[in-house]
Structures are given as structure tokens and as C-alpha cells.
Nucleic acid binder design. Sequence first.
DNA 1: CGTCCTTTGAAGTGG
DNA 2: CCACTTCAAAGGACG
Length: 442
Amino acid sequence: YLQMKWPLLDVPSSATVKDTRSPSPAHLSNKVPVVQHPHHMHPLTPLITYSNDHFSPGSPPTHLSPEIDPKTAGIPRPPHPSELSPYYPLSPGAVGQIPHPLGWLVPQQGQPMYSLPPGGFRHPYPALAMNASMSSLVSSRFSPHMVAPAHPGLPTSGIPHPAIVSPIVKQEPAPPSLSPAVSAKSPVTVKKEEEKKPHVKKPLNAFMLYMKEMRAKVVAECTLKESAAINQILGRKWHNLSREEQAKYYELARKERQLHSQLYPTWSARDNYGKKKKRKREKQLSQTQSQQQVQEAEGALASKSKKPCVQYLPPEKPCDSPASSHGSMLDSPATPSAALASPAAPAATHSEQAQPLSLTTKPETRAQLALHSAAFLSAKAAASSSGQMGSQPPLLSRPLPLGSMPTALLASPPSFPATLHAHQALPVLQAQPLSLVTKSAH
DNA sequence: CGTCCTTTGAAGTGG
DNA sequence: CCACTTCAAAGGACG
């Protein structure tokens, strides 16, 4: 099960640092530099199943089925020490310098941490060869000069942190000095290095990790390729995940951040501020709109009859082109409120409150998102008051910013108690009116 | 070519 | 402390 679920997160269980290129037995035997994989050609194909929980292996990809039934997903995957970051193969400088806090193994110097089979993705055991996060990782987070050293195996070239994005195709740059002790340099030198220091990207959060893993799957099952639409689906699938499943990604993201901070102790997200184009004004505008429509949604939900900004979507409708599925592509067999409700709670419990969302047009999107949040809160509160949140981490007891509400309601991911068990009684959010989400209510 | 779209989450800024 | 903003991935769409 573990192999199927997280095939490439597997690494040698030995505590000895050795070649992680061949992490596991047979299923990662092909050693092809990841860079040889064309960026535009995603290695994953519909034939590749890496998550039996979410997709039936072998079944033709006919429908996108965001419905995820954790109950049928098999045994909850226990924490595995080998769940380490595939995204941060330590650089040569890091090897031997940074004892990985989690006991992760580091790749051999100058070696790609992960490899792809030749000729695209024809691994004899595709399901075990690589998951989406791996593939997307290698295709997007490694630049050729990083992972394809002229002399693989030589300690000279290494594997910089995948978060590093160097626009200049050069043999360098290596990741910033990894050990504070090693970086005893003059301020001038430091400044100089900082000027040309590579762009270190933010570590991926739980949802981003999830997207990386699942995107190919969704794309394979849909005809659409537009990321915006895919992301909408993924967002819904994310909500459909069980608490336990999400916890895996939260934990993974936590490890990512931990490793990232170790690799780049001086890095700050601030470093990347302003490096992307800002679209502040529009965001503010739409935010205002969403706030307005949250209130509308409140009323609608309060009356429990009308659903403005909400379009019901045919449950069985497979995801198709955005145009043809206008207003329907995002639906899933699972009712959103089932997803919105406590994942651990029986999905049917709140399914009658389904408020499927169709994030189609721009103005509506925000509103629907807001409504989504509102419905989420509603479902959460309902679940809470009905005593079905016992297995959930503590929920916040105060209103939350709209943007962070779902997260917070999901129980403060950063403090997500991975070891939480169903028998543990936890304080839960008291059932509150939907107006909680608004400032005025606050 | 650069930016937008779209998602969630983390971390930043500013009041 | 709170609200808001930015960026992380992705790739088609668009100016």
C-alpha cells in the first residue's frame, strides 16, 4: 500500500547515507538523468496509477472523480519515516553537513535524486516508478545544469536545492552556503554573493504538494489542460480529502519547510517579494466583491433555499473543456458540503446540504469561493454541533480571515496534530452563524 | 514575452 | 493582533 501510495517517497530505510538514486529495490532501477525528460512532456500517463485511493488502477480515465472515500481508500497510511522530501535533494555542500532532522537520506553528490526511465515514461512498473510530484518535480524544479552534471558521480557538480531557480544557464550556482559555520565571510563578500545569489523559491505548502502529485492525474482524466481549471478541480479534490490524507501533505509540507530552512537559513519569503507581477488592485476589488457576496451567500444559506452564485452541477459529468462544462465541470460525485464537512465524518451526513460550486466566470468565482467558505463554515459548524468532529483537531474559536478560513477550519495546519486519533476528544468550534466570516459579525 | 487565471497555505507587510 | 498581499506550481490564454 505504501508503495502504491507514495512510491517515490520511498527511500532506503537504512540510516546510512548512501546512494538514494536507487532508493528502492526494483522499481527505481532506471537511471536516467531527470533532465532528459522533456519539460513539456509530462511523464505521467493515464496508465500510471500511483494512488489507488483516488483512482482506480486500470480503469479507463473516463470521468474525473474527485470523490474520494477515505473509508474505502484502504488502511490509513501510517507515518513513514521515509516520507521525505523529494523536492529538496541536498546539494553537495549539504551532504554531510546537514544532518537531516528527519533522518532523511541525501543523494550522492552529482547525482540526480530521481530518475526517469528512458523514452518518456515506460517504466516496467509505472505505478511504482514515479508519482506526479516526482515527475513534476523533475520536470520543473530541476534545471538541466543542476541535475545533469557533466560527470555524474563526481563531487564537483551537485544537486542544488530544487527551489533554486537560476535564470542563467551556467554550471553554477551552488546553493547558498548551507552551514552558518562555513559562511564566515566578510560583509562585502556576502553582499556580492547576495547580489548574484540564485532565486530560492518558497517551499511548497501542503496544497501545492498535493497539486504536484495530483495534477497529472487530473489532467489525464480530463480533456482540459488549463491549469486554472485544473486547479479548481484540485482545490475541490483537496477538500474532498480526508483529514488523514490531508495530514500527510501538511506533514510533508512541514518537512519541506524544515528542510528548506536548514538549507537556506537566511532565506526569507521576503526575498521573493516583488519578483512577480502584482495584481493587487484587482485582487482587492474582487475581494470586496467576494465579501459582499459572502453576505448574499449568508442570506441564501440562512434561508436554505436559494443559492445565488451557486450552480448545481451534474454529478456524473466528467470534466471536459471549460466551455462545454461551463458551470458543471467542477462538480464531483461528492457533494461539496460532504467535502466541506469534516472529512472524517460520514460523507452522507451533510450531503443534503450540498452547495456545489461552479467557479467559472471571474466575478462569480470570488463570490463562489466565498460561498464555498461560508458553506464550509456552515458544514463545519454543523458537524461540530452534531458531535462529529471529535476526531478533528481543535478549531479556531474566533472569526477568521476569509482567505485563511478554510485552512483554519481544517485545524491550523501548522499545528496539525499528526498523531491525533479519533478517540481523542478535542475542543471544536462552536456552531456559529455564518456571519462569523464577516467583519461586521466580528 | 510577460502576465493572468485559479487553487490553498505560509509568510510577508502595514495599520 | 488583524487584515491584507505575495508567492509557491502549472500551462493555456491573452495583450
